[in-house]
Structure formats: structure tokens, C-alpha cells
Amino acid sequence: MNKKNKFKERIFMVLFMTGISAFFVSAISVVHLSTKETVRRNENLFLKRSVLYTAGIPFEKDPLEIEKVFNKKVTVSQNDGLPKYTVHSEKGTIKIYTVQGKGLWGEIIAHVGLFKDMKMSGISFIKQSETPGLGARIDEKWFKEQFRGKKGPFSTVPEGSTSQINEFDAVTGATITTKAVEDILNTTYKKLSKEYRE
């Protein structure tokens, strides 16, 4: 093959690649922009659901219902630059804090709800990137449900053996993640204990 042909081939290669990239990128951008609003709404709804779950308030699946319950019972304020929610439920006023800490792989962010006597109304994880099937199991129901009515500072016990008010079940095979949750909760308790005594 002579030089000129080779050059022509190169040019065609580059043009082809550019053309096809441009086509696909614009196609994707269109889809992205058209769903952007939905994605944002989903995020918003996710946070609201998380707050209601943490407070232990039952809610329907319907987004409008969730919106209604949320607006009726919850007020939002700021605490250390993070959102704080005050929920008025039948069991009393619950304050829900947004707390964060280090997990095995990345940040763990959670909603932690406390009654006036510092007993927990619940917990919900809004961000975690732990190992699927191991650490990520903190996001499963059995793990989150065990915190309702408990009171820290906490220590952990092997999975399935919790019995005390200041204990919670560890996740088998995910020691670091469990420790991370323990640390997050205990730091929260330490930070807030003064505020609650007053």
C-alpha cells in the first residue's frame, strides 16, 4: 500500500470515529436531558421516603401520598450544614439527623432518628458503597429494623443474637462496615448528648 492511500485510510478512520461518536453522544444526551427531571424527582422522593421510614411512619407507595404525609408531619431545618428533620408523630416528636462517616470503600451517609429520651426511632442509609452481599447488607430490612427503640452508645454482637437495648447485630463477614455504623452512631450520640440533657 502506498503512502497516500494509507494517509487517506487514516483520515477516514478518524472521521468515522468522530462521526459515530458525535452521533451516539448526542443521542444519549437527548435521553439524558429528557429524563433529568425524573431522576431529580426520584432523588427527592428517595430522601422523603428515607425520612418517613426512619421516623417509623408507614406510607403508601404512591409518590403523591408520600409527598402529602411528608408535608403534613415534617419540617426541615439545618444542623451543621446538613439537613435536619423534625417529625411530629403519634409517638412524640422525632428529630432526624443526617450523619456521615467512613465505610470500607467510601462514605456512608445515614438518617438517624431520635425521640426526646434519645431512643432511636430508626435508621436509614442514604448513601453507601459497601461490598454487595456483604457490607451492603446494612441496607437490608433486618439490619435497619433492629434499631427501633434502641439507645446508644452501642456495642455489637454476632448476627442474630442481639438482646440488650444498647446492642445491635453485626453483619457477618463485614466487620469493617459494621464498625463504621457503630462509630457513626456512637459519635452522633456523643455529639448530641449535651444538647439532649438540657
Binding site: 461518536s21 451516539f24 453522544v25 444519549i28 435521553v31 429524563t35 431522576v39
Partner: peptide, 18 residues
């Protein structure tokens, strides 16, 4: 790869939205 990646992003966006 480019074609495959484009479809995968599509799947990702759809999952995120729905």
C-alpha cells in the same frame, strides 16, 4: 465498544429514572 457503551448508558439512565 463505543456502540456497546452507548447502549449501556441508555440502560443506566433508564434504570435511574424508572
Amino acid at each position: 465498544t463505543l456502540i456497546i457503551a452507548s447502549y449501556v448508558i441508555l440502560v443506566d439512565i433508564v434504570l435511574k429514572a424508572f
